[in-house]
């Protein structure tokens, strides 16, 4: 077990270093690095690649993109294992405040990141993506929702996030911009919970991120919210001061900020920072 692992480490060392070197240009980073890991078995001289397991706490709306990024990171750094925990940014911020062992925090709002940095758990967050809202409706649109104003119709059952959660706060901005009073049937703990209520057809509409509608594929339909009333939220990322492997954590953040990271995020529907 030890020897093949070592061989892989040495085989991809060069590519891996390229991948974690911030905005390192060239074709070596990310996906190509992953395929090289499997394809190349010739051993070179041992090098000191990163090692250690890190835990990334990421906003629920990052589920698809960060799962992909974590896989790519692991492929590029065979000595590293990444565990990503997805939940509402506010839930994760509370976990960090309560001492959750974690290395990286990626939030869906600057406010929750501010709470974490103000408490001294992280420094210098960097915004890596921007998201905006969309209305998700079940296939066939049973509530006949054609625009954001339909959410105010009492006959249309709507799910929103809790107002404390970033997706709830951003949805509230949209409704304020549109001058609407919406009475949701449920306030869910995170954006994926709203999405699943829509997927199951339990509600006629849910206000979620553009990226969530994209990620749900054919399970939901998206109804656009015009730019004039839409609201956006910034996604900041930072390494946590409690990290046991700050070098690995920093390398992961670099990957998220790299062109590879930007590619994965934009494929998921995020707007560039």
């Amino acid at each position: 077990m030890r020897r093949p692992a070592l061989a892989l480490v040495t085989a991809v060392a060069g590519l891996a270093l390229a991948a974690c070197g911030g905005g390192a240009p060239g074709p070596g980073a990310g996906a190509t690095g992953a395929s090289a890991t499997r394809g190349t078995t010739t051993a070179g001289s041992p090098t000191s690649d990163l090692s250690g397991d890190i835990t990334v706490l990421a906003a629920a709306s990052l589920t698809e993109s960060f799962t992909t990024l974590a896989e790519r990171f692991e492929a590029a750094h065979p000595g590293v294992s990444v565990t990503v925990s997805f939940a509402a940014s506010s839930t994760l911020a509370a976990q960090i405040a309560d001492g959750a062992p974690a290395d990286v925090y990626a939030s869906a709002s600057a406010t929750t990141m501010d709470d974490v940095t103000a408490a001294g758990h992280a420094d210098d967050p960097v915004v890596f993506a921007v998201n905006s809202m969309q209305i998700a409706v079940p296939p066939g649109n049973p509530g006949d929702v054609t625009g954001v104003e339909d959410l105010a119709d009492p006959a249309v059952t709507t799910a929103l996030c809790q107002p404390e959660v970033p997706c709830g706060a951003t949805a509230a901005q949209v409704l304020t911009h549109a001058g609407l009073t919406v009475r949701p049937v449920t306030l869910e703990p995170n954006v994926k919970a709203v999405l699943s209520k829509v997927r199951l057809g339990e509600v006629d509409a849910g206000v979620v991120y553009v990226t969530d509608v994209l990620a749900a594929g054919d399970d939901v339909e998206g109804v656009e919210i015009p730019g004039a009333v839409n609201a956006t939220t910034d996604y900041p990322i930072a390494t946590l001061s409690r990290s046991q492997h700050p070098d690995v954590a920093a390398a992961f953040v670099d990957l998220v900020l790299s062109p590879t990271g930007a590619g994965v995020l934009s494929a998921a529907g995020f707007a560039p920072r």
Partner: peptide, 20 residues
């Protein structure tokens, strides 16, 4: 689900309050 006064019971209220 969870909506204050309609379906938000005490344990759910505790859970949400812990964050805010």
């Amino acid at each position: 689900g969870s909506f204050p006064g309609r379906t938000q019971t005490m344990p759910i209220a505790v859970y949400y309050a812990l964050e805010a």
